[in-house]
Simulated scan of single mutants.
Amino acid sequence: MTDRAPVLILGGTTEGYALAEALAAHPRWRPVSSLAGRTGRPRPPAGEMRVGGFGGAEGLARYLADSGITAVIDATHPFAARMGWNAAEGCAAAGVPLLRLERPAWRPVPGDRWVGVTNWDGAVAELRDMDARRVLLALGRQDLAPFAALPGTWFLIRSVEAPDPMPPFAAAEVLLARGPFTLEGETALLRERGIDAIVCKNSGGTATDAKLTAARALGVRVVMRDRPPRPAGVPVVATVAEALAWLENVTGSAPQMRW
């Protein structure tokens, strides 16, 4: 039988799940997906799964050595910046090749009313300057607190899981929902709730971009948080096919056969 080489996927994203499926069906590699564990019941990926942190870059380096990991593919969320830095440091220390699999960022097109910010305090300032009254917060439950500083604004908080604890908003509604979202649904949501501004992260991808198309059509303003910086020198690809080609290149010949 074939002894397949273990590949660590830092996952939790659509790309990470797709990559795990591709590797699970591949004769050369065995996927081991690591999930952060921020959701209570994560969907199991194809292949092996571990949940939780490594203990920083040093802990990751030890794990890579102890587990005989052949390569690491960082397919974490574009805003999981800390893991990206730990991956770069840990892989360098262990001598294990590292790739970043990341969906392309969204780009504004004619008709968009976007303003970019680098942090949530900047987003709060933009909402205050534009006198936004009814705002869709499409950014997850862990980044809500800064927006409670706007007592004159009503917020629609869309999240996969309920905020716990809930920040002290003067007026807010929680909408539990998971993408992908349709253009028809997003258009209806913005109209029915009277949304005049959206706050979101530049996550990219197609699962949640319908809100941007709907906002463009309705003239709704968008406060978009820019992606955080990531380590220089780490190769980046946008597709699973490109990730597989990279693996072929960095792992060289096929693993030996054991009987």
Rank of each mutant, 00 (worst) to 15 (best):
N119V: 07
D121C: 06
G111S: 11
W120S: 13
A94H: 04
A94Y: 02
A94E: 09
G116A: 15
L98I: 03
C91Q: 03
C91R: 01
R113L: 05
A94S: 10
A125D: 14
E126G: 02
G90T: 09
R107N: 02
G90A: 12
V124R: 10
V109R: 14
V117L: 15
L99Y: 00
G116K: 04
V124A: 14
R100H: 06
E89T: 03
R107W: 01
W120V: 08
R113I: 11
W114D: 03
N119S: 15
V124C: 13
W114I: 02
N119Q: 09
R107I: 07
R103I: 06
R113N: 13
V117N: 10
R103Y: 11
V115Q: 15
G116P: 04
V115T: 12
D112L: 11
R103Q: 03
A123V: 03
L99E: 00
G90C: 07
R100L: 01
E89W: 05
R128C: 07
R100C: 14
W106P: 02
P108W: 01
A94N: 04
P108A: 00
E89N: 05
E126M: 12
P110L: 07
E126F: 03
G122I: 04
R100V: 11
P97T: 02
L101C: 10
V117I: 08
G111K: 05
G90N: 10
P97H: 00
